[in-house]
């Protein structure tokens, strides 16, 4: 599988990565320190660390069930970690009251693993839903149609506006979900397995979409995946989540050249 269709795909080398990392060094938008989370005897995260710098594409890879979804759910306050420090855009999540948390969340886009479209609402209502509580942020007076249209056009699905989610295919659902994520113009987007369960061609389309959105809006992205090809195309930096910790970090080329057996396992075809 080969996803690079754009000529401008950066062939990242180590020193280049170092340079770009230095540029980002001034501002971390997400910081996780020593986060732990267990479900009974099942210790999912055992001191996980992660930093997402402004404007960067960070890929987190890990086996199924390694706790990737748990990690980003802790990040937006959907789950509370057992211990550890989580900071998003300079605010510690666990200390926020509901209102501040909601305001913060309007700057974070979350693409759910299973799309999570509201199946009792049309596509349009789905996209309007996040706007209910954040009208002032967008400065909308009444008509939300242009915004809905813009978001849908971004993902090339303007014609589905009045359909119900169960009338869409899996890939279309994912794109609508992406449009819903984008509608509040978030500064950070968290993608939970954006390509899982999709055929390679649709997966490629989604990845292209993610890249064009990144370019258009200059967002910082945290991408969770176990799709190596997706990681290669989109990542500027990668973190491998193994045994509940950030086992290895680096660029795609650094990590794929690693001889550590646990790291190698990810890149073996």
């Amino acid at each position: 599988m080969n996803y690079d269709m754009n000529k401008d795909t950066p062939k990242i080398k180590t020193n280049e990565h170092q340079k770009s990392k230095d540029n980002f060094e001034q501002k971390a938008v997400i910081r996780l320190n020593n986060v732990t989370k267990s479900f009974g005897e099942n210790h999912v995260l055992n001191g996980f660390n992660l930093v997402l710098y402004e404007g960067e594409n960070l890929v987190v890879m890990g086996k199924s069930g390694s706790g990737k979804s748990v990690m980003i759910k802790c990040l937006v306050g959907l789950m509370a970690p057992d211990s550890g420090y989580i900071e998003v855009m300079g605010k510690e999540i666990s200390t926020l009251d509901r209102q501040t948390l909601d305001e913060l969340r309007s700057d974070i886009g979350f693409l759910f693993q299973g799309s999570a479209l509201y199946d009792s609402m049309t596509v349009r209502e789905n996209l309007e839903f996040p706007m209910r509580r954040h009208r002032d942020k967008l400065g909308i007076v009444k008509d939300t149609t242009p915004l809905v249209l813009e978001a849908l056009e971004n993902v090339g699905l303007a014609h589905t506006m009045n359909l119900m989610p169960d009338e869409l295919s899996g890939g279309m659902k994912r794109r609508v979900a992406l449009a819903r994520t984008l509608i509040l113009k978030p500064k950070i987007i968290l993608y939970d397995e954006p390509t899982s369960g999709l055929d390679p061609i649709t997966a490629k389309e989604i990845i292209e979409l993610m890249r064009s959105i990144q370019k258009k809006y200059g967002t910082s992205s945290l991408i969770i995946t176990h799709d190596v090809d997706c990681a290669r195309v989109i990542s500027e930096r990668m973190v491998l989540l193994v045994d509940g910790i950030n086992y290895a970090e680096g660029t795609y080329s650094e990590l794929s050249a690693s001889t550590d057996p646990k790291v190698e396992a990810f890149f073996k075809k």
């Binding site: 759910k73 937006v76 959907l78 509901r98 909601d102 305001e103 969340r105 309007s106 974070i108 979350f110 759910f112 693993q113 299973g114 999570a116 479209l117 509201y118 199946d119 009792s120 839903f129 996040p130 209910r132 509580r133 954040h134 819903r180 509040l184």
Partner: peptide, 21 residues
Amino acid sequence: AELGSMRVTEQIDAMEVSGTN
């Protein structure tokens, strides 16, 4: 059944992160 399936398919979580309680 309705709320259950919304919970299972993460629709309730999606509401939560989009600022609606």
